[in-house]
């Protein structure tokens, strides 16, 4: 059975698109046919992060409106033939996505794909609502920061009341916490909420912690999902997340500060 994953947060700029690109690539690299859809109508960006921006011909809205077939619009990744991207439309018409339209496209994708990753826009408006409406699993991307945690909780309320599963009284969407842009050094200094703090507040199953990492900017500069940077901390963290999601039991990493050199030891408490 195909599974639909929504990558959501409420708050903007917390790392949804970075995460969507990474986990979609990760799932595809594991051999699962995966589609990743950009729901951010008017602010298409997933194509850039995945490095396929120059190959966009048709988009999500073209498919919904019957102006292109799904096969015409899906872009096959050059690095992994199991990964396909459906770009967002750059139209300024916020009503371009409809429940029926999105439902129809997802239904068709489910016939041939194992995983469908929906990159949600920020906010709780139409785009964000449609991105999560048909989901089976939700990756709640959160930064260790007050407004992000609050908005994540808000999003949890929406997932449990406004989704198709909620409306039909089916098994609820499975919710996972992805704590990203984590800085263990600042946590240690008492300047940043810790993983435990965030879990105490949100009570979510932790899928992984992604550290604040320079690798992310390097990856987006070159249009390579950071998970392909296997030497990087963020890349490894996303790999672990994919493995855990697929049922592997992997210990959490990047929660504590790395071992310090001599200078660090001098200052250690």
């Amino acid at each position: 059975m195909a599974r639909i994953i929504v990558v959501t947060s409420g708050k903007g700029g917390v790392g949804k698109t970075t995460t969507s690109a990474a986990i979609a690539m990760g799932l595809a690299k594991k051999g699962h046919k995966t589609a990743v859809i950009d729901f951010d109508v008017g602010l298409r960006n997933l194509d850039l992060i995945l490095g396929c921006e120059r190959r966009v011909v048709y988009d999500f809205v073209n498919v919904i409106n019957g102006e292109a077939t799904l096969n015409q619009a899906l872009i096959k990744d050059k690095r992994c033939d199991k990964l396909f991207v459906l770009p967002a439309s750059q139209t300024r018409d916020k009503d371009a996505l409809t429940v029926e339209g999105v439902g129809k496209v997802l239904k068709e994708l489910k016939k041939t794909f194992k995983y469908i990753v929906c990159d949600s826009p920020a906010g709780i408006e139409r785009g964000a609502h449609l991105a999560m409406y048909f989901a089976d699993d939700a990756f709640v991307v959160t930064n260790p920061e007050v407004s992000s945690v609050r908005d994540s909780d808000r999003m949890l309320g929406i997932l449990s009341s406004k989704s198709q599963r909620a409306e039909k009284s089916e098994t609820p969407i499975k919710e996972y916490l992805l704590l990203t842009r984590y800085n263990p050094a600042r946590v240690k200094l008492g300047e940043m909420l810790s993983v435990d703090d965030v879990q105490d507040i949100l009570s979510l199953h932790l899928l992984g912690v992604i550290p604040e990492s320079q690798a992310v900017l390097n990856a987006s500069n070159s249009g390579t999902p950071v998970i392909l940077d296997e030497a990087s901390d963020a890349g490894q963290s996303y790999s672990d997340i994919v493995d855990r999601y697929l049922g592997e039991d992997k210990p959490h990493r990047f929660i504590d500060e790395e071992k310090k050199g001599l200078f660090g030891r001098l200052f250690r408490s």
């Binding site: 920061e145 007050v146 945690v149 609050r150 909780d153 008492g190 300047e191 909420l193 507040i201």
Partner: peptide
């Protein structure tokens, strides 16, 4: 961070 946690716990419970 402790302050942030306390404020969030109260706010989230209320919301």
């Amino acid at each position: 961070a402790q302050l942030a946690k306390e404020r969030l716990q109260i706010l989230v419970a209320h919301e």
